[in-house]
Design a protein around this nucleic acid. Structure first.
Lengths: 229, 229
DNA sequence: GTCTATAAGTGGATAGAC
DNA sequence: GTCTATCCACTTATAGAC
């Protein structure tokens, strides 16, 4: 399974606001990274342009040389996330991999792939921004519904469909299996990484606990849908 | 199973801010109900004291004759929710009821009890306030963790424990069963009643869809943990 | 490209007349 | 108990000097 790069680059300036000089691009990137940091800690509305500017080390009016508005910063954060998602492996690869190494090994590898994807701190922060602004920002809500819930459950559904076709699972409804798997993954994410989030604590601890619960859940799913060797 | 009253009264004024006159109490109650309406539609931070006052039909400064601060209004909304929860039936009653009528009937009755509890529009709106402010307001986060997640999973865990004791379920780990049941219930609630919430649409439709998914999930759980008749 | 200064508005909360 | 008037901190965004 492909491992994504932990140090992905941010997208280049495209708008008319920031000039093409080297200094301009670097300031623009600093604004973007600082915004991701602040939004992920305090939420979009709670962070002001002044606060971003102060953290970057410029005056607030200078931000508008690089971004048209506060909203334009958010837009670019979301497109950065999309550019990272496109690195994910295909369904065909995924199901083939499961057939190769067996179901239980596959679920473990899948877990570590997820951790790899999330090992990019920027991606992790963007997930956090999306999660905490889900019910306060219509643009983020639509983004979440389309690019996380909708695409996510589709991928799992097709994955389970392929697994059943390859006789790796019993002939269950793929949509039900997907819903069982996906709902639990979302539940764990929100519980351990958002609700119980503590920036001062050891970041490995929520991972450990979430994974322990996920293992129990996978055993549970396999008890219904698994096929004995 | 006990059905809760759909027209529960709001708690009386207790602070020093509102006097004991009939008119004062009625204005205070109007402020509270209006705040619940507005907070549940737009969120706590997005609604200003001015906006509440305008909707009630008084000036913003008059609010402070009835409540010490905006936060005090929220406090009272949360205590109203707690006063309603205390009406819920006991575990012993619940497990006995399951033994009486059988597991599948019980799950259906449980579903309609939940709908009954949620049939109070005020309770429904308070759930919505809690859900959308979960990651923006520390007081609400703690309230949710304590009074919904923590108490909720405990109740389900003990309920499943009693059911296993009474041989209604196979000897599975009650904590795992609780987590399977509770996580899915939360997932459905957030998906259908918060994420896809549409005040202009038919309110029966999300209920129908959520319940259909819940039925599939219960069948799934019973396939692992159920005991054949 | 960054700055100062400022516009034009929002927010919660208070003082004091009636 | 409600009103008018006001305070002060804070918001996004713009104009124009350098």
């Amino acid at each position: 399974m492909k491992r994504t790069d932990g140090n992905a680059k941010l997208p280049r300036s495209q708008g008319k606001t920031s000039s093409g000089t080297r200094k301009g691009r670097r300031t623009r990137e600093r604004i973007l990274l600082t915004s991701i940091d602040l939004f992920s800690e305090k939420g979009y509305d709670a962070v002001s342009i002044r606060e971003i500017a102060a953290a970057v080390g410029i005056k607030d009016s200078s931000i508008y040389r690089h971004f048209e508005s506060k909203d334009a910063i958010l837009d670019e954060i979301l497109s950065y996330y999309l550019s990272r998602v496109s690195d994910a492996p295909s369904l065909e690869q995924t199901a083939n991999r499961a057939a190769e190494i067996g179901l239980e090994n596959f679920f473990h590898e899948f877990g570590s792939f997820y951790l790899g994807f999330m090992s990019d701190p920027t991606t992790q922060k963007i997930w956090r921004i999306i999660a905490i602004e889900l019910y306060h920002n219509d643009k983020i809500k639509r983004f979440f519904q389309k690019n996380i819930v909708c695409i996510g459950s589709q991928i799992f559904e097709e994955m389970f469909h392929l697994m059943i076709e390859r006789k790796l699972l019993k002939d269950h409804d793929p949509a039900t299996l997907s819903s069982e798997f996906f709902s639990f993954a979302l539940y764990l994410y929100f519980k351990y990484f958002i609700l119980e989030y503590d920036p001062t604590a050891d970041p490995a601890e929520p991972h450990r606990r979430a994974w322990a619960e996920m293992e129990a859940h996978i055993q549970f799913l396999l008890a219904v849908a698994g096929v004995k060797k």
